[in-house]
């Protein structure tokens, strides 16, 4: 880890928020932001760092959410373990998907992932003995949990908030770590020129499959959290194309391939979506579509990317601007 201290400080600060006594609505919004951050970051690892645009990540979220639900409702395994199992299951499912789809490049890869996601959705919809079909799963009561003698109160938002902070932190810290590693350098090489990357000896398929598994693990965790927090999962909620698109949008609007991008994108979209829905009575997807178009047209590096570039502009360039006007 290159910069552990800022991360520890940021996570500690985030964990202190519930002590400031925010209302449960504020905590709910924060939980949503952190959940979307996790999902956006999951997509960003593959789409941003490696340049592989997937339109099927909802399938992986769905695998995570369903694993959590099935383990709890059929086997009695608590959802906080189920979330981890969900991440692992999504990573496992991603292996054959990766081996198949990574034989294709660019838009063809995107289309293939879309088809895979539709197949997963159809399975969730029709394999009723496992998934309950269109009815889905509902958790009526969460199991009791004692941490150091404290009984966790599931009616409060705080335990979910803490879980969401940890998930988002796992997603962002792992992105940062990959970016600074040798693997990250391989991914940039693949993103910029896959043929060249292969020519210098990078095993591109292996690198991409590993990255997809990483991305899938995070998406599965996010899906497990969705099941845990909303206590309800059906194919329309976790397996639809809309969800895949929302993950893309968060990463794209925040800043493709940046560490902080998904957090910025999730904050921006969630906050403004709440306002748009509350004040104007519009569906938030209208706003998603519009902001997507505006960002690509005017700010392709995303909000975080733009801010980052302005902050880290080389001195010389700044001086040139100052001198040249």
């Amino acid at each position: 880890m290159r910069r552990a201290a800022p991360w520890v400080a940021a996570i500690a600060a985030a964990l202190l928020v519930p002590f400031a006594g925010p209302g449960s609505f504020v905590l709910h919004v924060l939980i949503l932001v952190l959940m979307w951050t996790t999902l956006g970051a999951a997509w960003n690892v593959l789409g941003g760092l490696a340049g592989q645009v997937s339109f099927g990540h909802a399938a992986l979220v769905g695998v995570g959410a369903y694993t959590t639900m099935i383990l709890y409702l059929k086997l009695g395994i608590a959802p906080w373990w189920g979330m981890l199992a969900g991440g692992a299951a999504a990573a496992l499912v991603s292996l054959p998907i990766g081996l198949l789809c990574f034989r294709l490049r660019g838009p063809y890869f995107s289309l293939a992932t879309l088809a895979v996601a539709e197949i997963v959705r159809l399975v969730a919809l029709n394999f009723e003995s496992l998934t309950n079909g269109p009815v889905g799963f509902l958790i009526t009561a969460l199991p009791p949990l004692h941490l150091g003698g404290w009984a966790v109160n599931w009616e409060s938002k705080t335990p979910f908030y803490v879980a969401a902070v940890l998930l988002a932190a796992a997603a962002l810290v792992s992105t940062d770590w990959v970016k600074g590693s040798r693997l990250g350098a391989y991914l940039v090489a693949i993103r910029e020129d896959e043929d060249a990357a292969e020519a210098v000896g990078i095993d591109t398929v292996r690198v991409k499959v590993i990255t997809l598994a990483h991305s899938a693990f995070l998406a599965g965790l996010g899906g497990g959290f969705y099941a845990f927090y909303f206590r309800y999962v059906d194919p329309d909620a976790v397996c639809n194309i809309g969800l895949s698109m929302e993950m893309v949008f968060i990463a794209m609007v925040g800043g493709l391939g940046t560490v902080g991008g998904p957090l910025v994108g999730a904050t921006f979209l969630t906050a403004v979506a709440e306002v748009v829905r509350g004040q104007l009575g519009l569906g938030h997807l209208v706003f998603y579509g519009l902001s997507m178009m505006l960002v690509i047209r005017f700010m392709p590096e995303g909000i975080w990317g733009r801010v980052h570039r302005l902050l880290t502009r080389p001195r010389g360039a700044a001086a040139d601007v100052a001198l040249g006007g």
Partner: peptide, 24 residues
């Protein structure tokens, strides 16, 4: 001119916009 993937994502945005305005 921004590239294939940017265009793909741009039309995805357009698609969401049109469908959801229609929904509204």
């Amino acid at each position: 001119p921004g590239g294939e993937l940017n265009t793909l994502l741009y039309t995805a945005g357009l698609s969401l916009l049109v469908a959801n305005v229609a929904l509204l």
